Amino acid sequence: MSYRNGQRLPLEGGGALRLSVNPRARRLSIRIDARAGEAVAVAPSERRLGEVVAFARTKAGWIAERLAARVETLAFEPGAVVTWLGRPVRLEASGGAGAARLIETDEGPVLRSGGQGEAFSRRIENWFRRAARDFLTERTQVHLKSLGQGPVKVSIVDTRSRWGSCSPHNRSIRYSWRVIMAPPAVADYLAAHEVAHLVHADHSPAYWAVVARLIGDHRPHRRWLRDHGAALHAVGG
């Protein structure tokens, strides 16, 4: 049987399996897309999708457990409490159509925005995207200077499979805006992680030595993203 990129298959025990081709992938893998509520089977080429489907079927029990345990979506709506650089932030409607703005109150930071429904949510997400660009651009510059590297183009995106990516050949780095909800040290780790790829494009010991040179022990930050990443992807979904 032939399979195609983007195809969805039913899974034993419930749920769906989405097939994805990523030419940069070095191996077959399965991940959970918490926002979509489905498993994603990744292969480096379309001709290997059959292999990753077979692999996914051997992991049916694990996939069912992970889907059942996925974090519920937290919408951007008035009254919701989200995080910004690890700090709880309450969302409030201000009336009108103004852009979201952060206000420090005696009870902590509040993010107030105009708009209703999707318009409110869009303004809140735009604020987080701007906050991510400001923080990650600044930390990228710090790490570039530490390594004696020249400038890069920074883009803010909303990827579900990767927190960031670096293209050394055209000196561009892409970051998921969602990492701005993590503690500052975790977001800074992501910047160091991607900048280090300008020196080593792989994940060799030499590469990790560069990351350690920039931020010290990176393992707690990697662990934090692994343990809490699904919750960040569930926000605003």
Rank of each mutant, 00 (worst) to 15 (best):
S146C: 12
W177G: 01
A196N: 05
G150A: 15
T159G: 12
H197C: 08
H193A: 02
R178E: 08
R213P: 00
S204F: 03
R139P: 15
A185E: 13
N170W: 07
A187T: 04
D188M: 06
R213Q: 05
S165L: 06
V211L: 01
V186A: 04
S176D: 13
R213I: 00
L198G: 07
V154G: 12
L198I: 07
H203T: 00
A182I: 03
T137H: 13
H193G: 01
T159Q: 13
R174N: 13
G150F: 11
W208I: 06
A187R: 02
A212K: 07
E194W: 10
Y175F: 15
S155L: 14
Y189Q: 04
D188W: 05
V210I: 12
K145W: 15
V199H: 01
D202R: 04
T159Y: 13
N170M: 07
V210W: 03
K153D: 15
S165T: 09
I180V: 13
S176H: 10
A206K: 08
H143I: 13
V186F: 11
I173T: 01
H143N: 15
L190W: 08
P168H: 09
H197G: 08
A191H: 05
D188S: 10
L147M: 10
H169E: 14
V179R: 00
N170H: 12
M181V: 10
S204A: 03
H197I: 09
L198W: 07
I173E: 02
V186H: 07
L214F: 09
T159L: 08
I180N: 08
V179Y: 14
R162N: 02
L147N: 12
W163N: 04
N170I: 09
H169M: 09
D188Q: 10
Y175D: 11
V211A: 00
W163A: 01
V157H: 11
R162D: 00
S172E: 11
Y189N: 05
L144S: 14
C166P: 04
K153A: 14
P151N: 15
L214D: 04
V199S: 05
Y175I: 04
H203L: 01
V142C: 12
R171C: 11
K153E: 15
V210T: 08
R178G: 10
Y189K: 02
A191S: 06
V154A: 12
A185I: 05
T137W: 14
I156L: 06
W177F: 03
E138W: 13
W177D: 00
H143W: 15
Y189W: 06
W208Y: 14
A209V: 02
A185H: 08
V199C: 07
A191W: 00
P205A: 01
E194K: 03
L144R: 12
E194S: 12
R174Q: 12
S165Q: 09
V211K: 04
R162G: 03
P184E: 13
N170Y: 11
L144M: 10
S161T: 15
P184G: 09
H143C: 14
V154E: 10
V186R: 01
T159A: 12
V195D: 04
W208S: 03
L214Q: 08
V152T: 06
R139T: 13
R213S: 02
L190G: 04
R178F: 13
T159D: 06
L144W: 14
N170R: 13
R178C: 09
S146V: 13
R178H: 11
E138R: 15
P183H: 14
V154C: 09
M181G: 05
Q149S: 11
D202W: 05
D188I: 02
A206V: 01
R160D: 09
V199T: 08
T137V: 11
A201T: 05
P183S: 07
